[in-house]
Design a protein around this nucleic acid. Sequence first.
DNA 1: TTAGGGTTAG
Length: 650
Amino acid sequence: MPVFPPPTPCALNSTSSPARDLFDAIPHRNAKPVPCRRRTRRHGGRTTISSSSPTLSAARDRIADDPTPRLFSALFKAASSASPSMGAQLHAQAVVRGFLDDAGSIILPTAILNFYASCREPDLARRVFDAMACTNAVTWNALIKGYAQAGRREEALELFLAMRRQSHVAPDRYTFPALLSGIGREQGGGCMQELGGAVHGQAIKSGLNRDPFVGASLVSMYAARGALDEVKVVFDDVDTLDPVVWSSLISAYVNCKEEEGALLTFYRMLCRDIKPRQFVYSSMFAVCGSMSMLEMGRQVHAHSLKSNTDKDAAMTNALLTMYSDCGCIRDALRVFNSNDIVDVVSYNSIILALGQHGHPKEATELYRQMNCAGLMPDDVTLLNLLSAFNHAGLVHEGLHIFNSMLDMEGIKPTYQHYACVADMLARSGQIGEAMKTIYEMPFEAEAPLWRIILGACSKHRDIRTGTKIAEMLFEMEPYEATNYILLGNIYTRLGRWTEAEKVRNMMEKRGIDRDDAFSWIEISQRTHRFGVDDRSHPISREIYRNLDRLIGSIKVAGYVPDISFAAHNIKKDRREESLHYHCEKLAFAFGDLATPSGDTLRIMKNLRVCGDCHCAYKYFSLITGREIILRDNHRFHHFNKGACSCGDYW
DNA sequence: TTAGGGTTAG
C-alpha cells in the first residue's frame, strides 16, 4: 500500500473548467454523493474540512428557483470555504447573467472581491476592485486584507496609504485589523517594523487604538516581534473588558516566552470575572506544558470543564500536548481517545507525543488509523513519524517513510525531514551515510544540523569526522559553547583528557561560557530547581545525605560510575565524586525525600541527560520501586524496575 | 458586503 495515496477528487472540484455550466458542476440534490476523502485546508489560520457545507448546499438548492444578485453574494460567501474553482465559475455566471452590469451596484462586486481575497488571490481581487465604479471602506478593507494575508505586506501598506489619500473614505475599525494581520507576521525586523509603529500611530491619531478589535490586532503585531513593552502600552489603552484583548495579551506573553506573565494575566482575568474561552485555555495549556507544571495544568483543565466552555480541536490538541509535555502520556492518550473533534493536528500531536515517550509502534498504528479515518497526513505528520522512528533507532522504518516521500507525488521532504533522517543515521552510528544525506539534500545544512552530527560523533567516538565538523562549526559559530563541549566530550569518552583540557582552554581564551545545567521538579505546585553541586535548597543537607545513601545502595546493586561523563576540568581524583552531585541526581534525591514511597517522580532537565545519570536513574527506579519520568531537552525517559523506555538508545 | 486571540513540527 502506498504511503501517500493521492486524494480522490472531491465531487465539487473534480475536472472543472471555467466554461462548464455552474449547474453541471453542482451535483443534483438527489444524486448519490460521490465518496470523497476529507482534506483539511487552512484558511486564515483556521482548519476547515472541505466538503459540501450546509450553507453552500442550502444556497445551491435555492439558486435554481431564484437566481438573484443577493443570492449570488451568499453563494460567494459559502464558496470561499468550499472550493476556489466553484467561485470562479460563479463569477463567470454573474457576468453572463449581467449581474455586474449595474455601475451603482456594490454588494455583489464586494462579495466577489472578498471571495478572491479569502482564496489568497489578491491580484484577482484587485481586478474586481479596479472595475468597480464606486468603492467604499468595505471594499478597501477587503482588498487590504487580501494582500496582507497573502504575505504581500508592502502592497497592503501602499493600499492603506492610497486609501488615506482618498477624501471620501477613511480607515475605520476594520481597516487596522486587516492591515496588521499581515505586518505582525513579518520576520527579521527592518522597515516593516517601523511601519507597524507608524500604523499604530495612525490608529492613535484616529482614536481607534481604544477599539478592542484594533487593540487585539496591535497586541498581536507587537507580540510577533517580541516587543512586550509595546504590547502592555497597547493593552492599557484599550478601554474595554473584551475577552479577546485579554486572550491576545496572554498569547503575547506566550510568544515572548514570558510564561509567568501569562499565568498572572490569566489570574487577573479570572479576578475580573472575564470568562476565558477556548483560545485562552489553549494558551494556558501550552504554558503549563512548556513549564511542565502538571498540577497547574490539571487545575486549568478542571477550570475549563467547570466553566462549560465549548471544546474545539485546537483546545483539545493543546490539552493533549500539555499532558504529554508534563510526562503523562497515558493522560494524553486518554484526551485523544475521548476527543470527538479529531483533526490532522490531533493525530500529529499524539504521534509526536508517542514518539517522544518511546512508543514508535503505537505512533505507527495511529498513523494507519489516521489514513483509515480519511484524514490526509501532512508534512508535520511525516516529520513526527520519522522523529518517532529516530527516537527508537528504527532506521529501516524511517528510511522507508522517507524514500516513499522521495519516490511519490505528494508531500515533498523539507529541510526538517532531511535533517531528521541525517540525525537518525548518525545517531545509529551510520555517520558516513548521514554525511552523504546532508551533501545530497537540496538545502544548505545549517549549524544546528552539523551540531547534531557532532553529537553523534561524540556518542560513537568518531574523532576524525568530529574534529572536521567542529572546526567548521567554530568558524560558523565561534561563540557557541555547545560546539566546544561536544568536541571536548569526544576526547573525554576516549580518555584523552589532555586534548579535552585544550578545548576547554580554547573556550576560556575566547571568553565563552557554557550553559549551566539545571533540573527541576514540581512538588505540591512548587517548583524546586537544582544546579550542579547546588547547595542552595533550604533542606540541602538532608538532600545530600539522602543522595549519598542512594548512591551507596545503587553501588551495592551494581551501579558503576562512568567517569567519562565527568566535566573536563575536574581533577582526576575528584571525577567520580563530581558525578554524584549532578543536577538530575539532586532533583531525584529531593523528590525521594519529599513524596511518599512508591510515588511516580517527574523530573525535568534543561539539557540532555548525562549518560552516568541515565544509568544511575535505572538503579534508582530498581531500589526505590518508583517510576521516574525524566524530560530532557530532547525526549522523555521512563525508568521502571531498572530499565528505561528508551532502551538505552538516545 | 468587511474585523481581533489559541493547538502539532522546526
